[in-house]
């Protein structure tokens, strides 16, 4: 296994003698989307902000890409790390294109390269450059603002992206679209992402790895399936299971793992990469007990039945 992208070892932080993060150890593999999950006040945001040193840590070591993150000048470190916050933090006096160009300009990229990159990012975030480049942040909806926030964080093509409850302030429909966007970008770019949230559904949807935090410590880390199926403590079980464990299990398992190869079924096939929850929803909506399953290229590979969901 190659060296982790981020490695926190024995990291601690206290305010006025009260430990917010205590002796925290966590390794995030390269290319992972690691969700720091926990109730408010568990130290997840503080942990995230210690990675780009917005919060100076009191003790321990933080290594990014094998290098001591506490050594380089703090501005140089931050320019290599994308950062997205809940309230977007867009500069209200700058147009969208200038907001996105912030870090490339701090890095003194040549102007034509900056403009090309801004254009590319607007298209990646599905914001038509002709419409959006010249707007000011207050002319955008909350979801559009957060897309610009993500584009700005990606501008200098950082290896690492830190996201602090980025979608907590947008409506559920917009949040769903933004989550899909992040999943797509993560898959397409292979960037390492550390994502803070208290929303278990968001964590299960996005994460390749979840670190559940409580009172300044990581109480369990592993794949979403591990966390849901084998909670390491009552705290994790309670936190993850608050809103019905069964549906959560369906939400983290894929149709591909349960399908009966070679079987047939009527109707529009469902994608093999869809979750079991999506398959169940489709069955309920269509009032059928079986669905055809197709791979991404449209080739039907089998079927899945209601009974397969509970196997």
């Amino acid at each position: 296994m190659s060296e982790p992208m981020i490695e926190l070892r024995g990291v601690s932080k206290s305010y006025n003698g009260r430990a917010v993060v205590g002796d925290l150890t966590l390794a995030v593999p390269r290319g992972a989307l690691c969700v720091l999950l926990g109730p408010s006040g568990c130290g997840k945001s503080t942990t995230l902000r210690m990675i780009n040193r917005l919060v100076p840590c009191d003790g321990g070591t933080i290594r990014i890409d094998g290098e001591d993150a506490l050594r380089p000048p703090v501005e140089a470190l931050r320019r290599r790390i994308g950062y997205v916050i809940q309230s977007t933090g867009l500069f209200p006096h700058w147009r969208v294109d200038d907001n996105i160009a912030t870090v490339p300009r701090l890095l003194h990229w040549p102007e034509p390269r900056v403009r090309a990159r801004v254009h590319e990012l607007l298209e990646m975030l599905r914001l038509d450059p002709r419409i959006y480049a010249g707007k000011y942040p207050h002319q955008l909806s909350g979801g559009e603002q957060q897309r610009v926030g993500v584009a700005r964080a990606l501008a200098a093509d950082p290896e690492l992206l830190l996201m602090d409850e980025p979608f907590a302030a947008v409506d559920p429909v917009t949040r769903d679209a933004l989550q899909a966007e992040i999943a797509r970008i993560h898959e397409a770019t292979g960037k390492t992402i550390v994502f803070v949230t208290h929303d278990i559904a968001e964590a299960l949807r996005l994460a390749t790895m979840i670190a559940v935090m409580d009172r300044g410590r990581v109480v369990q880390s592993g794949t979403p399936l591990d966390i849901v199926e084998r909670p390491a403590s009552d705290f994790v079980r309670d936190f993850v299971g608050v809103q019905g464990l069964g549906l959560k299990l369906l939400a983290v398992r894929r149709v591909r793992d349960r399908l009966q190869t070679g079987e047939q079924a009527d109707g529009e096939p469902i994608d093999a990469g869809a979750t079991l929850a999506e398959a169940l929803a489709a069955m309920v909506a269509r009032r059928v007990g079986r669905l055809a399953v197709a791979e991404g290229d449209g080739r039907v590979v089998g079927a899945i039945a209601l009974g397969d969901l509970v196997r």
């Binding site: 780009n52 917005l54 703090v74 501005e75 140089a76 470190l77 931050r78 320019r79 950062y83 916050i85 977007t88 933090g89 867009l90 500069f91 209200p92 912030t102 870090v103 701090l106 926030g149 700005r152 964080a153 830190l162």
Partner: peptide, 9 residues
């Protein structure tokens, strides 16, 4: 805005 500015370096 200030947090974002600092966070971006």
């Amino acid at each position: 805005a200030i947090e974002a500015a600092r966070g971006m370096g």
